[in-house]
């Protein structure tokens, strides 16, 4: 087979399966799972955003759930003010219009990422892992302290966002919307990966000192990637708040960040496709094993251990077979 053919075929096949999934589940009488599948796609988007900094830029963020939370809270707070009728600061009204709230979610998570990244990127290695964790924990406790917005219990959304007359409360519509966003984001980031920006980023990952010697302002490149990643993750957060009709500090917990990290490593770091597969595999395994036995973690745990020991380049590395020259 031509060298690039196999991964492309697999991607096309995956897309067909994803497109056919809701009617298939409906025919099997398992329509309930369409909502679950949408959540899987959203977590895949978040894992994808993490791979942008982790796989391409070599920045292992252990606090990416913070951006997920910020995105979700923007949607949650907008909806709360619609319900409550009280104005936001500067006399702005609440909103449930997706065309306003979702971009705002991306702006706020991008700004958060700018702040966190500007400080954290001065460190590297294990210290970067810990400092991103520290910032995420601060936001986690901050969200828990927002007594107006439910404190530790979070905000329940009364309505999903409104998007151009689409009925987002319909699971199928919402699923296809999530799929569309994920595919666009994946395609865009794959383009970015092959672009000059992506090349510089991968150069920084492999040898930052050399890139600096070549004259690249590596700090700015890394910060730009971090902010972009935060924005995509914020969008995932906004979608997640819609999927579960709920936004709470638990979204920012370090367990959530760890879960994203596991998805990326499981799927295959740096490939961008891998984390999507990793998210699907992890969540499907959780759901499937939970159906089998209530003690599913006792099976999933060792399974992850074996995967970590055997599949060096993750699931995508196994699937595409060929050694990845990146």
């Amino acid at each position: 087979m031509a060298p690039e053919l196999r991964p492309r075929l697999i991607l096309a096949l995956l897309l067909v399966v994803a497109l056919a999934l809701p009617p298939l589940l409906g025919a099997l009488g398992q329509g309930f799972y369409v909502g679950f599948a949408a959540r899987v796609l959203i977590m895949a988007l978040a894992a994808l955003s993490l791979d942008l900094v982790m796989g391409l830029g070599g920045m292992v963020s252990f606090g990416h759930a913070a951006f997920l939370g910020v995105g979700a809270y923007v949607v949650g707070i907008g909806s709360w003010h619609v319900f409550d009728g009280s104005p936001l600061p500067f006399g702005l009204p609440g909103s449930e219009n997706a065309l306003i709230v979702w971009p705002l979610a991306m702006v706020f998570s991008g700004l958060t990422a700018l702040g966190i990244g500007a400080i954290s990127l001065r460190t590297s290695g294990v210290h970067f892992i810990m400092i991103t964790l520290a910032f995420a924990q601060m936001l986690f406790y901050l969200a828990g302290g927002l007594k107006t917005y439910g404190g530790d219990d979070g905000i329940t959304l009364y309505n999903r966002s409104e998007l151009l007359g689409l009925k987002l409360s319909d699971p199928q519509t919402f699923y296809y919307l999530c799929l569309g966003i994920l595919v666009v984001a994946l395609a865009a980031l794959l383009r970015l990966r092959a672009s000059r920006f992506g090349m510089v980023l991968r150069g920084v990952r492999d040898n930052e000192r050399r890139m600096r010697a070549l004259g690249f302002p590596t700090y700015r490149y890394k910060l730009a990637a971090f902010v972009l990643s935060g924005m995509v993750c914020g969008l995932a957060g906004a979608l997640l708040a819609n999927a579960s009709e709920f936004a709470s500090p638990a979204l920012m917990s370090w367990q959530k960040s760890g879960e994203l990290l596991v998805m990326v490593v499981l799927g295959g770091m740096g490939s961008l496709v891998g984390p999507v597969l990793g998210a699907v595999a992890l969540m499907a395994l959780e759901e499937g094993l939970a159906d089998l036995t209530q003690h599913w973690q006792v099976i999933l745990g060792p399974l992850l251990l074996v995967l970590a020991l055997s599949a060096r380049r993750g699931l995508w590395g196994l699937l595409r077979g060929r050694r990845d020259h990146d």
Partner: peptide, 23 residues
Amino acid sequence: RDHLDQVLATFGLIMFFNEGVRM
């Protein structure tokens, strides 16, 4: 191995121990 493989593997161990203790 890479630090990240270690994270994945020991994350699996946490799951195993937590559920084992619960059982």
